[in-house]
Write a protein that binds this DNA or RNA. Structure first.
Lengths: 107, 107
DNA sequence: TAGCCATATAACGTATTAGCTATATAGCTA
DNA sequence: TAGCTATATAGCTAATACGTTATATGGCTA
């Protein structure tokens, strides 16, 4: 594998996942979890992201609705979930997001 | 207006329009209409793009289905329609597409 | 003007998406 | 192990998307 290898992405699937104000908002918040969410007892915001609960609350939707948005992002490989001490933390998958941006530049 | 002005775009709307293999394919074909479609009697491929009919045929869907895909692209401002001698020609809206790509780079 | 051809719209069926409430699961914690 | 809390799934409704066929529109052309 050389440094020029790019992740293979499913552009249509990624765009479907991104074509939602709610999910764009989540990804934006996750650029800086420490600034956008309350302090967390467990799970470093920078390393692991923000917990499901905080994201749901900030979105202002029901817990299942928020949970599903996060699942869409994870399924599209745009976010990564980390389970830790009973909470699930979500963070951006930067390499995959970069790959989508690169693919977009050739559209 | 300075040269640094950017088009204001509705990113969610643009991504919804792009989140379709069929429409990504259309935009790709329209990068080079002369190479991707048969010769046209009227309407310069480079200037005006390809006519509805050729796009529909190449997509392999019914005429109304193709027509609606094109309408989605036009409504999202990603394509431009030109009516001429009874045909409608479609071409890419490069400035708008560029604006989407720029917006995406900040996602 | 009359007819014709390209394109758009209407109407309909099916699949997907997004919200909700209710419930199940997972896994700490005591 | 038992209970509790966080998260995920199930089941429902409403809205949206995409395909079809049938029909309407628009505007050349003769």
């Amino acid at each position: 594998m050389s440094s020029t290898d790019e992740l293979t992405i499913d552009l249509e699937a990624a765009l479907k996942a991104l074509a939602s104000d709610r999910r764009l908002q989540i990804l934006d918040w996750l650029k800086d979890p420490a600034a956008n969410f309350p302090p967390q007892e467990h799970g470093d915001p920078v390393e692991h992201g923000a917990c499901n609960q905080y994201i749901v609350e900030k979105l202002g939707v029901s817990q299942p609705a928020g949970s599903r948005h996060l699942k869409v992002l994870v399924d599209a490989d745009l976010a990564i979930a980390t389970r830790r001490k009973g909470w699930v933390y979500y963070r951006r998958n930067e390499p995959a997001i970069d790959a989508v941006v690169r693919a977009m530049s050739q559209i």
